[in-house]
Design a protein around this nucleic acid. Sequence first.
DNA 1: GGGCAAATGTAGCCTTGCTACAAGAACTCG
DNA 2: CGAGTTCTTGTAGCAAGGCTACATTTGCCC
Lengths: 294, 294
Amino acid sequence: MSLPAVAPPARPAPNVVEAIREALPRLRRSERAVAETVLADPRRVLGETLAGTAALAGVSQPTVVRFAVAVGCSGYSDFRLRLAHSLALGTPATHSVILESDGLEDVVGKIFDYTISSLDWARRHLDPGALARAVELLENATALAFFGFGASGIVAADAQQKFPLFGVPCTAETDAHQQIMAATMLRPTDVAVAISNTGRTRTVLEATRLARAAGAKVVAVTGSDSPLARAADVALVVETLDNTDVYTPTISRIAALVVVDVLSTAVALRRDAGRQARFRAMKASLNDQREGGG
Amino acid sequence: MSLPAVAPPARPAPNVVEAIREALPRLRRSERAVAETVLADPRRVLGETLAGTAALAGVSQPTVVRFAVAVGCSGYSDFRLRLAHSLALGTPATHSVILESDGLEDVVGKIFDYTISSLDWARRHLDPGALARAVELLENATALAFFGFGASGIVAADAQQKFPLFGVPCTAETDAHQQIMAATMLRPTDVAVAISNTGRTRTVLEATRLARAAGAKVVAVTGSDSPLARAADVALVVETLDNTDVYTPTISRIAALVVVDVLSTAVALRRDAGRQARFRAMKASLNDQREGGG
DNA sequence: GGGCAAATGTAGCCTTGCTACAAGAACTCG
DNA sequence: CGAGTTCTTGTAGCAAGGCTACATTTGCCC
């Protein structure tokens, strides 16, 4: 007699903290009190029972339940479970601001938390359609050129090293002049990958235009719906959490690296599948050359 | 009247799945049945109630409770919470093996899961003492030299770009001859950072010895207790999950990047406010290189 | 083979989360 | 400006779920 309850959604488990923030304006006053209690110290709430949370927020128990339902959970138990899930993916960004007074342990914790939660965010905000189109382009390319400056240049260099997976010659240009020259020289069957977190780096934009003028396709890897995203054939928007803190490392490059991992792996899988198909076809052809029966 | 229950440990929340695996041999027979049920499909169990899990494993409810206690939880509720936490950090590696038959969505999910869980693993296996010693060395350095090949070369190049945070001149050598030359030329007040996941790259090892012979200190960033770790003054062992799958991207470089983030941020925090001002000015100058919004 | 200890299941208690209902606040419309 | 209505919030009781004391069974050792 174990009805599967409301099994938590398999993959796109929405971050409950995010959901609370988003739902905040449309909540009733006392429900908002609960929301603020949770946001103020999620970890504390996680250890509390329904009655405890109610006391903490200064409201009645049913109000807490109503709050849980309002933010998309099926009840308080489900809420707690999802909260645990969300907290595991790093404390929300606002808590990860690095302070002058932080010890080394704090820095380690905050940076890892921040990186992990940003990766989770990036994953959930990736457009599967765009990704599929990008893989499609890369798979059919005769050569790949990666463009990027600074941190994005690192991503470009890393992508270039993955040429065994991409299966075609790869170059990475991290110099302005080289980018312009390489973009101009692209063949129509080549694909350029323009990497820029801001999506406003002038030279990368220019290289994108030149590449398209040369007839090549361009995949953009960028942090927001930017000029670069609009200038490319396919835009992979790799959203990361806001980065207002001076000390906070540039998470964008890590998310971009992981996206490149996804692209290279997906392309390799497809190529292998293709190769296997061709291999099977070849074997079949070979069999036709032989006389029947073992 | 809300006794804080057994509040889940603040930071070093041990992965419960890992804990189960580790505890498996010393469990009683029926408890082991529960363990195997959980390991077989953790997500399923997460949705189940105590009675449900007991039924699933074919044992009584108290046995499930005893199992939970045996793996370090305070009860079934706590167990569920921790399981949610662990599952959020990515399905255990064994489930992340990428198959030929995987669709794009699967590849995205598996690579992100794998990356996130590996980062979590790396964080929990970092030696805080070694990290502190590394920060100490870097903080007092007059110049930094990063050495690495291949994927580790990417990490070195990334680290070099963080010189504004490190506050001293930084170089990154990814060429064998350059590494040897640079290592030989180091001053005793300089610090070298040798990066190698295997910890057995010959040239990096040689550069480490030369650097130390020149009187410089060497910090090693490596994936295991390797020759490089032993040859250096401080060894930062960045453990990542086993990587047996051909398709699985090299997670080690991402973990190493995050460790470099930690190092650079920790060093920057220790430095004076004057440098911060210059750092902000630099960021402002960078913005001038970008095209206006919209 | 008998006794002892460890292991597992049974039964009941108590906490906890959920829901029907009622009281109160706020807003609206005459 | 007041009465009606709706929306919001708290009270009380219920059902379920997790926990524990105890009894039974299994396995081991002498």
